[in-house]
Design a protein around this nucleic acid. Structure first.
Lengths: 256, 256
DNA sequence: CGAACTCTTGACTAGTGTCAAATTTTGTGG
DNA sequence: CCACAAAATTTGACACTAGTCAAGAGTTCG
């Protein structure tokens, strides 16, 4: 299920989201020693202030990046899905400025940062891939800043649902699409700059308005265009065009 | 001040914020053809959807990055000061997802993205510098997201004042330090997810509380520690240590 | 020197937050 | 697989921060 071969494939396909690698480059990645670890939900993978020596990628499950204010409020800065690198900046920056925790039970692969860094120095195309993945990450962060800073709660929640739907599917969405939404309403709130109570009210409204359906931790999109409209969502800002739409396996099972 | 030689020096010193370049690497940068342009305040330098062929750096004056919601609200995503690259992601991503405008009258230098990109492919250390500058940019974006998402207005404004003070000074700050704050209260509001009216009220409160002084477009910091305290500010998150600035360490580790 | 921005201030409103309690779902050990 | 405890969701009542509107004063710049 999570054998090392399929993990290598996952890592390479992630690096190839942005541009195709040569066989030699793929080989260089495949040759890196990789470690696999399983975590319970809510485990810390990386802590603020760490000087990380390893660089991690989500193989199965979900993770998130967060930071706390001095007064204890939590801001979630990113959600990570299978295939997402969790700390690709560790190749370049000495100290981490955020925490990363698993959201669900998860399998995380990691490799020595120096190994990947050396590969990037030797193969410019790998360096480019890494740079682009970091830039895609930054683009999502800008999108969140826009969302939290300048949209009201209803729109904000709808926008995030659109983003997550898009990222889970990795391709265009249709009415009636379903996807897993494993985060609690409190976690959604902490990502959106709202309170859990208000997220709850807003989700109910989206449901009453016929835009989404909910059951357990799954979201159904009833009318994609209407949801995008309410959420002021456009995939363009996330550079999904360049990202080419990796087909991702729902259960986190790397294939291909 | 804006002859080409000093601009080359500025570009190189920016790339060397994060690591020292060899003479050959410096030479490669110095050899790139550079264009200089002057802009009035509020001019567009880059527009959303552009496929930029050039890569710009602020030589004099201020600029900012912004995006508009469909309903016309503006979110400012970054402020750029002299020495800051304005669109370093253009080396890697085909399409720009934000607008960049001058804030004041400004001088902007630019070079062909392909030239800089080629230099990065040839010299891994240049690629690393570019990558790090992009990562520092992303770190500030995360800091803003945190600020807008999880701090109340007073704290939010104080935090931004601390960040700007730190970036203008490029080093540790003392009580009584003064700096230019060229943005209007409406622009501050659009950066902070507030309204101009509320920014005004908050600035007045910071002044009444004896934390800052204001005259025209200048800010005086009366008590740096108190302002950092109100703004929950720590330079660490911005990686100023790596950037050659002085690190302000705060106590307390996250317990959540 | 005047027009057009900014800034300031007050009065009022709206959107979210807070608190609390009931209900449902999830996870765990027997 | 069940039973129970813990966690998450849902709902209502109420509070408060920040938004809106409006108008006067101050600044900036051609």
């Amino acid at each position: 299920m999570s054998d090392l071969n399929s993990v290598v494939t996952l890592i390479i396909s992630q690096l190839e989201r942005t541009e195709t690698l040569s066989p030699a480059e793929r080989g260089a990645i495949a040759a890196l020693p990789i470690r696999l670890r399983n975590f319970d939900a809510s485990s810390y993978i990386i802590r603020e202030g760490d000087r990380p020596e390893r660089c991690s990628i989500v193989v199965m499950g979900y993770a998130f990046r967060q930071r706390l204010t001095t007064s204890g409020a939590r801001q979630i800065l990113a959600f990570h899905m299978p295939g997402d690198f969790v700390d690709l900046q560790s190749l370049y920056l000495a100290e981490t400025d955020y925490n990363v925790q698993t959201l669900t039970r998860a399998t995380i692969a990691d490799m020595a940062a120096t190994d990947l860094s050396a590969a990037a120095d030797r193969y410019p195309r790998i360096a480019r891939s890494v740079a682009m993945l970091n830039l895609l990450d930054a683009a999502i962060c800008r999108d969140w800043l826009m969302n939290v800073g300048r949209r009201e709660a209803l729109s904000r929640v709808a926008h995030l649902l659109c983003e997550l739907a898009h990222r889970s599917a990795g391709k265009a969405l249709t009415d009636g699409a379903q996807y897993e939404l494993p985060m609690t309403q409190e976690q959604l709130a902490d990502a959106l700059g709202l309170t859990a109570v208000h997220v709850n009210r807003v989700l109910k409204k989206l449901q009453n308005d016929g835009l989404i359906s909910r059951s357990k931790r799954h979201i159904g999109i009833l009318t994609w265009d209407a949801l995008c409209d309410v959420g002021d969502f456009s995939a363009r800002y996330l550079h999904f065009a360049q990202a080419g739409g990796v087909d991702r396996v729902t259960e986190g099972n790397p294939s291909r």
